[in-house]
Amino acid sequence: MPRQPEGVVRAPTESLREAQRLLDAGMPFHAHEVFEDAWKSGPASERDLWQGLAQLAVGLTHAARGNTAGGARLLRRGADRLAAGPGAPGGTAAAAHGIDIAGLVAWARELAERTSAAGGGRPPVVDAAAEAPRLRLGPA
């Protein structure tokens, strides 16, 4: 599947809408690329927010491809970044964009725990579309 075009500058609401569409379609790596564009083109004060979202998307990518250890590690890293950064619950960046930081952190930690607990044998492959998180607060 072709990659997303790189270096696309979008408004935060456009980035979130496009990333959600890609996540829902089971294309978390492509969503990661949208978040990467947002952190590269956005204000420095929001870099941790967009990087944390990108880590969640690439963590889901790894989990879906069977790399559950790497996926769990990236999901936890992204959750920690979101929980501690300027996008944290109550943070102005997350509030301004309507991002459900608390929900995303809980989702990422739960998926990381579930995938890393798979243990011996061949790890189960996560269905990326079925596991896609909701990025924003409010109705889908």
Results as ranks from 00 to 15, higher is better:
residue 60 L to P: 01
residue 105 V to E: 06
residue 94 A to R: 03
residue 118 A to V: 07
residue 93 A to G: 02
residue 122 R to I: 11
residue 2 P to I: 14
residue 48 D to N: 11
residue 2 P to G: 14
residue 77 R to Q: 11
residue 95 A to Q: 15
residue 44 A to S: 12
residue 36 E to P: 06
residue 24 D to E: 12
residue 112 A to K: 03
residue 125 V to L: 14
residue 120 G to S: 13
residue 110 E to F: 05
residue 59 G to A: 04
residue 62 H to V: 08
residue 21 R to N: 05
residue 90 G to L: 10
residue 133 P to E: 12
residue 138 G to S: 12
residue 59 G to H: 00
residue 67 N to K: 07
residue 88 A to Q: 15
residue 54 A to E: 05
residue 139 P to G: 12
residue 36 E to M: 04
residue 13 T to L: 15
residue 34 V to A: 02
residue 73 R to L: 08
residue 59 G to Y: 05
residue 128 A to D: 10
residue 46 E to L: 02
residue 32 H to F: 14
residue 5 P to K: 09
residue 107 W to D: 07
residue 96 A to H: 11
residue 103 G to C: 05
residue 56 L to S: 05
residue 137 L to Q: 08
residue 49 L to M: 12
residue 11 A to K: 10
residue 93 A to F: 06
residue 105 V to C: 06
residue 111 L to I: 13
residue 109 R to Q: 14
residue 6 E to M: 08
residue 41 S to N: 15
residue 24 D to F: 00
residue 15 S to R: 05
residue 51 Q to S: 03
residue 17 R to T: 02
residue 32 H to E: 07
residue 97 H to Y: 15
residue 105 V to K: 03
residue 39 W to I: 05
residue 95 A to D: 15
residue 68 T to R: 10
residue 57 A to K: 02
residue 81 R to V: 02
residue 14 E to F: 04
residue 70 G to N: 08
residue 58 V to L: 08
residue 62 H to C: 06
residue 39 W to F: 11
residue 59 G to K: 03
residue 53 L to S: 01
residue 3 R to Q: 13
residue 31 A to Q: 04
residue 43 P to C: 07
residue 70 G to P: 05
residue 73 R to Y: 13
residue 50 W to T: 00
residue 65 R to Q: 13
residue 116 S to E: 15
residue 47 R to S: 09
residue 126 V to S: 09
residue 47 R to C: 03
residue 122 R to G: 11
residue 86 P to R: 11
